[in-house]
Design a protein around this nucleic acid. Structure first.
Length: 447
RNA sequence: GCGAUCGUAGCUCAGUUGGUUAGAGCGCCGGUUUGUGGUACCGGAGGUCGGGGGUUCGAGACCCCUCGAUCGCCCCA
């Protein structure tokens, strides 16, 4: 690489080959499941006014205070590359009058940007799939959203990942619990880790899932959310868990699971790989693969009417790491000219095959047939249609199907398809007999 | 933002205690061989050692700075 070639920006990825296939597989599967659950597709801007995020997510959160890509545009407005989907969707809901569609179920996917230290499963430009239900206060909405997430993971073939579920209660429950946690941890502040002493100010709930042994000692006796839930919050959570059981979605209670962003209420959840599994290994420290919850308080922070909503987002890269090798996609069939002068005919044949819906490819220039063939085999392309010189005067050429270990049925089916395709463009000779007996065709003239 | 490890051809790596024109395998290109053929052989292109500075008669190898990667912390998807 030349010294003056610009390098990629830190934390960005150029996804190619098998990784790109896995990425596409995640997106395609999400699109399919999304339609199954009748979530409507939305496309959102990649940047918004900075206040959309600072007001919705919370000024004190790490995301807003130190991870946003914010800049001033030429008009002097402060804009920010979206660090998440929900705030932008909430803004769109309010500015476009989408209230008329409530309850509105939407899904989208695309890039997000966060200025963080890159790590396994963590990038500065990363990609998420996202699903939201806006304008539904019913616990059944939470259930449907989670059932969708659960089905998505199953259809992706991801195993060893469990739904960790918690409730943060309604605004009152959450506030009282938070106050109790602050009081509890303040009493032992000096014995906490430095991180947790900071969290005491900014985000006391987060102390609950600290990994520091100094903090862990105090966790078992910390105030539990269950003791602060109002009757309404309790029955809401019971409806959610009951609905999940009825829907066959496996879950486990995670009392210390909280969300980092301020706008969450009631249901909070994460799908996390079980310890010791291949999935946990693949993800390293970035273990949450899909997370979300109910954010009834968000619309008000953007100046809208109180609007209940639930949603989740999942990291496409993280999911892609779990779906295993999907393999790079290769052609099944290649057309190979045996001599340089047959290259044009090979491309005519190729065009005929494609017009008939067959996936195929041919080299752009002539190459030693033996080496060209080797290359195709190495790439795992199973079928080659050789274009040979004509057997008789006046013919254009001769096409022969070369195959490896394929089954009789497979060869026959492909041979018939090729024959059909060629017959539309060319007059063929030696067509008699069954395909498996005569996998070659004399190409006598164009039609 | 903090810590640890690492950075040599397209890829995976080797380069003795610093010493002549920086190596291998794979890949790539050309040729021969073979001619339902992933074979074998011959030849070739391609690195100045992430970048900058320093120590030295002399540095890919030592020191400093910087950029990047990886893995943790933090945060989160």
């Amino acid at each position: 690489m030349s010294k003056n070639t610009p390098k990629a920006i830190r934390g960005t990825q150029d996804i190619f080959g098998a990784d790109a296939e896995a990425f596409a597989f995640v997106v395609e599967t999400f699109e399919r499941v999304r339609k199954l659950y009748r979530f409507r597709r939305v496309e959102m801007p990649v940047f918004e006014k900075t206040e959309v995020f600072s007001r919705a997510i919370g000024e004190t959160t790490d995301v807003v205070s130190k991870e946003m890509y914010s800049f001033e545009d030429r008009g002097g407005d402060s804009l920010t590359l979206r660090p998440e989907f929900t705030a932008g969707i909430a803004r769109a809901y309010l500015t476009n009058g989408w209230q008329q569609h409530a309850p509105l179920k939407v899904g989208t996917h695309g890039p997000l940007f966060r200025y963080e230290r890159p790590q396994k499963g963590r990038y500065r430009q990363f990609h998420q799939i996202d699903a939201e239900i806006i304008g539904a206060a019913e616990p059944q909405a939470d259930v449907e959203l989670l059932a969708m997430a659960d089905q998505l993971l199953k259809e992706l073939g991801i195993e060893g990942v469990t739904l960790h579920l918690n409730t943060l209660g309604d605004a009152d429950s959450r506030e009282n619990w938070r106050a109790a946690l602050v009081a509890y941890f303040s009493a032992v502040k000096g014995d906490l880790s430095q991180d947790s002493q900071d969290r005491l100010e900014k985000n006391p709930l987060r102390i609950l899932d600290s990994k520091d042994p100094r903090d862990k000692a105090f966790l078992p006796d910390a105030p539990k959310i269950d003791d602060f839930l109002t009757d309404g919050a309790v029955s809401f959570f019971e409806s959610v868990t009951g609905g999940l059981d009825a829907a066959g979605v496996k879950w486990q209670r995670a009392e210390s699971l909280v969300r980092g962003l301020d706008y969450y209420r009631h249901t909070a959840f994460e799908f996390i790989p079980d310890e010791g599994t291949a999935a946990a290994d693949a993800l390293g420290a970035q273990s949450t693969v899909l997370g979300g919850g109910r954010y009834d308080g968000l619309m008000e922070s953007l100046g809208g009417a109180p609007t209940p909503a639930v949603g989740w987002a999942a990291g496409i890269e993280r999911l892609a790491m779990l779906v295993g090798k999907t393999g790079d996609s290769e052609s099944r069939l290649a057309v190979l000219p045996k001599r340089e002068e047959l290259l044009p005919l090979a491309h005519e044949v190729l065009a005929a095959l494609r017009l008939d819906g067959l996936q195929a490819e041919a080299p752009f220039r002539f190459q030693n047939p033996s080496k060209a063939f080797q290359k195709l085999k190495k790439r795992g392309i199973p079928y080659v249609l050789d274009i040979d010189p004509p057997d008789f005067e006046g013919e254009l050429g001769h096409a022969r199907l070369i195959y490896g270990e394929a089954s009789y049925e497979e060869i026959t089916e492909l041979a018939v398809q090729i024959e059909d395709a060629l017959e539309r463009q060319f007059t063929l000779k030696f067509m008699g007999g069954k395909p498996h007996n005569s996998t070659g065709w004399g190409i006598s003239s164009r039609k």
